[in-house]
Every structure is written in C-alpha cells, then in structure tokens.
C-alpha cells in the first residue's frame, strides 16, 4: 500500500512523461490495488459512444464523390508531381544564373580596322572650326591628331 502511495506521489510530483511511464510500467501496471483505481475496458466503453450507434448515420459518399470528381484517379505522376517545386526552383535559379553569366561576359567582337576606329571630318573649339593635323608615328597603326585654333581673321 505504501508503494502505491509513493508511486502516485512520484507520478504527480515529476511531470516528465518518461519518468511517469516508468512509474506506470514498474508499479501501477502490475499492482492490483492501483489497477482497481483505473477504469477497465468495459467501464470505458460504457462512456464512449459506440460505433454501432453511428454505423447507419450520414452517408458521406455523395458529397465525397462530388468533391473528388467522377473519374479522377488519386494517382499523380509521382516523380514530377512530388518534385515539382524543386523543378520550378531549379529552372528559376538556372535562368537567373544564365542571365548573370551573359550580362558579365564581355562581348567578343571583331576588332575594327584602324581607319574605322577614328574618323575626323573637322574639330570645333568654342564653336569655331580649327585646323587639324595628323601625325603618323613610326608605328603603323598609331596617329596623333593635333588641333589648332585659327588666327583671328585668318
């Protein structure tokens, strides 16, 4: 009897489920005195609403059938359906990465001819055309351009 009191005390005092289960399994489960303080199956069943009372209740089938459709199979295309978000995410991230790649890659264009690089018809300084001189250097593709203001009245 004192063991029962100790077990009940410990059960209430220590509200840790594993410990409470230990108390139940080690003492209460096997103690006839403690078992007499617990409802048995018949007592519990007498308080529960039995299945038999509900067996012929509402027929859910018409509503359920309407909700799930006439001939719709619950089987989904497993791989694609289950991983659809992964596919969508991968495609999105891939598109972004490709976009970034192309935006940072320098465009490779054919180098233009030296004459196309620089073409000067005339140069204006202070809204007046100036004299322009070209100087060819030793190097074949290098020129100097010299602009000089015209003399007043010249």
């Amino acid at each position: 009897m004192w063991k029962c009191k100790v077990a009940n005390f410990l059960f209430k005092a220590v509200s840790i489920k594993i410990f409470q289960d230990y108390v139940v399994m080690s003492h209460i489960q096997t103690c006839s005195n403690c078992q007499s303080r617990l409802a048995n199956r018949e007592e519990a069943q007498s308080l529960l609403i039995p299945q038999a009372e509900l067996q012929n209740g509402k027929d859910f089938w018409p509503n359920v059938r309407h909700a799930i459709g006439e001939k719709q199979s619950p089987l989904k295309p497993a791989l694609v359906y289950r991983w659809r978000w992964a596919f969508i995410a991968t495609l999105t991230i891939g598109s972004i990465l490709v976009g970034i790649w192309f935006s940072f890659t320098p465009t490779l264009q054919k180098s233009p001819e030296p004459t196309q690089k620089f073409h000067v018809n005339y140069i204006e300084i202070e809204n007046k055309p100036v004299q322009v001189f070209y100087f060819k250097t030793q190097e074949e593709n290098m020129f100097f351009v010299w602009a000089e203001k015209s003399e007043e009245g010249g």
């Binding site: 489920k17 594993i18 409470q20 230990y22 139940v24 209460i28 303080r37 617990l38 007592e43 519990a44």
Partner: peptide, 18 residues
C-alpha cells in the same frame, strides 16, 4: 508521440474516468 507518452495519456484517462 513516444509510446511512453501515449501510455501516460491512457493512464491519466483511465484514472480520471474511474
């Protein structure tokens, strides 16, 4: 939940009902 927790729930239920 763990079986231990389930057994504790059941024990409490049976005790309260009784």
């Amino acid at each position: 939940c763990s079986p231990a927790t389930a057994r504790v729930h059941l024990y409490k239920a049976r005790k309260k009902i009784k």
